[in-house]
Design a protein around this nucleic acid. Structure first.
Length: 698
DNA sequence: CTTAGGG
DNA sequence: CCCTAAG
C-alpha cells in the first residue's frame, strides 16, 4: 500500500489527509542555532534559500526583501547580498513572514528541519517538510510568491496528484519556485539504517521500511528547474551524506557549509524570464514585524515522547530545541491555555450562572462606587446616583493619541469626571519603510483594537497611589477635591494574565521578550508622569496576536489578589507605584470557571487566512490549521476555526441576502466551497483507500 | 488532546 | 461559541 505524501508545499492543495495514526510525528528544531551545535537549523535553510534568491541582479523583489534585512546591502553585489542574508536570518525570517502577511510559516520550517539525531527516514521527512514549509513561506496568500511573481495552481504533468505552482505567464509573472526531492536516486538511502545513536526504537529504523518509508519515497522527482538556479538544501551531514545514495550511512562530522549540498532535497527555481523577481506586486502588510516565531508547545512534549523522534536521553527541552526560555514559557502558556479551556468546560452551567450573577451584582456595585470604567471606544463616567452611567464617546483616533487630559469638576455633591483621551503608551511596532500610510494606519488600528479588545479594567491612581479599595468613596480618597485633580489618573489594565499563580515564579524567568507585550498596559496618568521603560522593540502583531480571549474580569475580582508577572512589569513600568500589583492580574479562577467567551467575529482577513490554510491543509486538521494560520491568535482555538469553517461553508451556500455580519467577499466564499468540495472528496477517497486496505488484510 | 458534530 | 462523544 502506497501512501502518497505530497506535501511539497507551494501547491494549493497540499497534503492529502494522512490518517492520524499514519502521520509522521514532527519535531521542532531550534529556531536559533546554538553556537556549539551543528544542528541543521531552520535559519540556515531559509537564509540559504533567500541568499540564493538574491543572487540575481537587482530587481524590485529582491531589493525589497533585502531592504528588510539590511538596507546597506541593497545595490551591493550579489555575494555581499547573500552574505547579508545569511548573516541575518533573524531578520530575514520575520521579514519574510511579514511579507507574506502571515507569520505561521517559520514554525513550520523550524518544526521540520532535520535535527542531529534523526535517522534517515526522519531526515527525509524533515527535508520534505522543510521544502514544503519554505515554499509556503515564499508563497503569499494571494497566490503570488514573496517576490511578487504570481503563480497559480496547476497540475503537475508528471504527477496527476501533485499540484504545483507554476508560472502562469512568463511575460507577466516572474519565477516560480518549486521544491522537490530527488528521491529516485535516494530511494535506497531511505531504507538504509541511519540510526545515529543506535538507541532508536527498532521501529524507527529505516530497514523496517514501514509505511512512512513508502510515503517518503513515493514523491516523484520534479526536475524542471534550470541548472543554474537549482540548488539543494544541505542536510545535517551527520545524518545524511552522499553515502546515502548508495545506501550507506556515513557520518561526516560537523556540519558543512551550505554550498555543500546533499541530494535529497533540491530546490528548483524556475525562471520565467530574466527578471525573475522583478514583478513586484503590491504587498500586504497585515502583520508588522514580529519577533521570531516561537515553537514549543504541547506538541513538543508529544514529540519528545514519540517513538520516532526520541531525543537523546540527556537532552533537556532546551537542549533539544535550543530556544530555552522561549520554549519553556510558551509551553507554559499553551498548557495554561488548554488548562483554561478545559477548566472552562469542566464546569457545569450552574456554576456559570452563579458567576454571571455575581458579575452583574458587582458591576452594579462598582458603578455605584463612582468608579470610572472603560470599555473599548467608550468611556463611562458616572453620576453620583449611580443609576445611569453617562457614556462619553471617546472619539476613536484621538483616544489613542498621546495627549492625556482630564477634566475634573465638582458640582454639588456630584463629581464629574471626564476623560478626554486615553493614552496608550508603549505600543511599539515596526513597519517597513515601504509600507503605505494606509497600512500604517491599519497596523495601529489593529494594535489598538487588540489592546482594547483584550479586555481592560481601570485602575485609579490618586497622587501617585493606586487606589485599590473599590469601596472607598471619592470623598474618602480625596478625589473630590478639585485642587488635587492633577493627581488623579487612570490606568487601563489588561486582563490577560494566564498562568495560575502557582506558576508565577517559574514564569518570571522564562518570559520571552515578545511576551512582554502580551499584556499591553495602557494608562492615562495625570499625576505621575509616565516613565517610559526600556522596552524591547516589540511589534504590533504581538499585541494583536496576544491572548485576548479572556473575557472581562468580574469587577469584584480584586487585583490585590493577583500576582503580577514580569511581562506586565516590563510592559507597564509607568506604574512606578506598586507596579507589581497594579499592572497585571492573574486571571481569576472564577474567570476560568466559566464565562462564555466574548464573541469575536472573524474579520475578513482572518477568514482569508483560514481559507488559505484550509485550502492547504484540508478540513480535518484543525490543529494544524490553527498552528499555521492562527498560531498567535490565542483566542482562536482550533475548535473555533473548525466552527468558523462550518459557518463559512454554510454562509457560502446561502444567498447573500441571508448572510449577516461583516460580509465575506464572494471570492473567499467561492474558495470555501471549492476547498470544501475538494477536501470532502479527498476525505472520501481516503476512506475508500483505508477500507480497501483493511479489506486486503483479510 | 483532537476531531467531528450537534446545539 | 459551547458541549461532548470518540479516538
Amino acid at each position: 500500500m502506497l501512501h502518497k505524501r505530497l506535501n511539497h508545499g507551494l501547491y494549493g492543495y497540499e497534503v492529502p489527509p494522512i490518517p492520524r495514526a499514519a502521520r509522521s510525528p514532527r519535531r521542532r528544531v531550534p529556531y536559533r542555532k546554538k553556537a556549539d551545535d551543528d544542528q541543521m537549523c531552520a535559519f540556515d535553510l531559509l537564509a540559504t534559500v533567500a541568499g540564493k534568491l538574491l543572487e540575481g541582479e537587482d530587481n524590485p523583489g529582491a531589493t525589497e526583501l533585502l531592504s528588510g534585512v539590511d538596507k546597506g546591502a541593497v545595490g551591493d553585489n550579489s555575494v555581499k547580498k547573500e552574505k547579508v542574508v545569511k548573516d541575518n536570518p533573524e531578520k530575514l525570517i520575520p521579514y519574510i513572514e511579514e511579507k507574506c502577511s502571515r507569520n505561521f510559516f517559520v514554525s513550520e520550517i523550524i518544526s521540520q528541519a532535520p535535527a542531529a539525531n534523526h535517522n534517515m527516514k526522519e531526515v527525509s521527512h524533515a527535508q520534505n517538510d522543510a521544502c514544503s514549509a519554505f515554499a509556503s513561506v515564499i508563497t503569499t496568500s494571494d497566490g503570488s510568491d514573496i517576490f511578487g511573481s504570481s503563480a497559480k495552481l496547476v497540475n503537475d504533468p508528471n504527477n496527476n496528484e501533485r499540484r504545483n505552482f507554476s508560472k502562469v505567464d512568463a511575460e507577466h509573472y516572474g519565477s516560480t519556485i518549486s521544491f522537490s526531492r530527488l528521491d529516485v536516486e535516494n530511494k535506497n538511502c531511505i531504507k538504509t539504517e541511519p540510526a545515529m545513536t543506535g538507541k532508536e526504537p527498532r521501529s524507527t529504523r529505516a530497514d523496517t521500511c514501514c509505511i512512512e518509508d513508502l510515503i517518503v519515497q513515493d514523491v516523484k522527482p520534479h526536475a524542471l528547474g534550470n541548472a543554474d538556479n537549482s540548488f539543494k538544501f544541505p542536510l545535517k551531514p551527520s545524518v545524511l551524506s552522499e553515502g546515502s545514495k548508495k545506501g550507506v550511512f556515513r557520518d561526516q562530522g560537523p556540519r558543512g557549509s551550505f554550498p555543500t549540498c546533499r541530494d535529497n532535497v533540491k530546490l528548483v527555481v524556475r525562471d520565467g524570464d530574466e527578471n525573475s523577481f522583478g514583478c513586484t506586486a503590491p504587498r500586504k502588510f497585515n502583520k508588522a514585524f514580529r519577533p521570531p516565531a516561537r515553537m514549543g508547545d504541547k506538541r513538543i512534549k508529544r514529540l519528545l515522547a514519540s517513538r520516532y523522534w526520541k531525543a537523546p536521553p540527556k537532552m533537556s527541552n532546551e537542549d533539544c530545541f535550543n530556544i530555552g526560555l522561549e520554549t519553556k514559557s510558551v509551553h507554559h502558556n499553551k498548557a495554561n491555555c488548554y488548562k483554561r479551556q478545559r477548566s472552562l468546560r469542566d464546569y457545569p452551567i450552574k456554576k456559570r450562572r452563579l458567576y454571571d450573577h455575581s458579575f452583574e451584582t458587582n458591576a452594579y456595585e462598582r458603578v455605584r462606587n463612582n468608579e470610572a470604567s472603560f470599555s473599548p471606544g467608550k468611556i463611562y463616567s458616572e453620576n453620583a446616583s449611580g443609576s445611569v452611567p453617562i457614556i462619553h464617546e471617546a472619539n476613536g483616533v484621538s483616544t489613542f493619541a498621546a495627549s492625556q487630559q482630564k477634566c475634573f469638576q465638582s458640582r454639588d455633591s456630584h463629581v464629574k469626571l471626564k476623560i478626554k483621551s486615553f493614552r496608550v503608551p508603549e505600543l511599539f511596532f515596526e513597519i517597513p519603510e515601504t509600507a503605505t500610510v494606509g497600512s500604517l494606519k491599519r497596523t495601529v488600528m489593529e494594535a489598538v483594537t487588540a489592546v482594547l479588545g483584550g479586555g481592560l479594567r481601570v485602575g485609579v491612581l490618586f497622587q501617585g497611589k493606586k487606589i485599590r479599595d473599590d469601596n472607598k468613596t471619592l470623598v474618602q480618597t480625596g478625589i473630590y477635591d478639585n485642587n488635587k485633580n492633577d493627581a488623579l489618573g487612570f490606568t487601563l489594565e489588561p486582563l490577560c494574565s494566564q498562568a495560575p499563580p502557582t506558576q508565577c515564579p517559574e514564569d518570571h524567568s522564562f518570559i520571552p521578550p515578545r511576551q512582554l507585550t502580551r499584556c499591553p498596559h495602557t494608562s492615562v496618568n495625570q499625576g505621575n508622569s509616565d516613565v517610559s521603560p526600556e522596552l524591547p522593540s516589540t511589534n504590533i502583531s504581538n499585541i494583536i496576536d496576544s491572548d485576548h480571549d479572556s473575557a472581562p474580569s468580574p469587577p469584584e475580582m480584586s487585583i490585590d489578589k493577583c500576582l503580577s508577572d514580569s511581562k506586565a512589569l516590563v510592559a507597564a513600568p509607568e506604574m512606578n507605584v506598586e507596579p507589581l500589583s497594579a499592572i497585571s492580574m492573574r486571571k481569576s479562577k472564577r474567570l476560568d470557571v466559566g464565562q462564555r467567551r466574548i464573541r469575536r467575529p472573524f474579520s475578513v482577513s482572518e477568514v482569508e487566512a483560514l481559507v488559505q490554510a484550509v485550502e492547504k491543509l484540508g478540513t480535518g486538521r484543525w490543529r494544524d490549521v490553527k498552528m499555521r494560520a492562527f498560531d498567535n491568535a490565542k483566542h482562536r482555538t482550533y475548535v473555533d476555526l473548525k466552527d468558523k469553517w462550518k459557518t463559512l461553508v454554510h454562509t457560502a451556500r446561502i444567498s447573500p441576502q441571508q448572510r449577516r455580519g461583516e460580509p465575506v467577499p464572494q471570492e473567499l466564499l467561492d474558495r470555501v466551497l471549492a476547498a470544501h468540495a475538494f477536501w470532502s472528496q479527498q476525505q472520501a477517497k481516503q476512506q475508500l483507500k483505508q477500507h480497501s486496505e483493511a479489506f486486503l488484510l483479510f
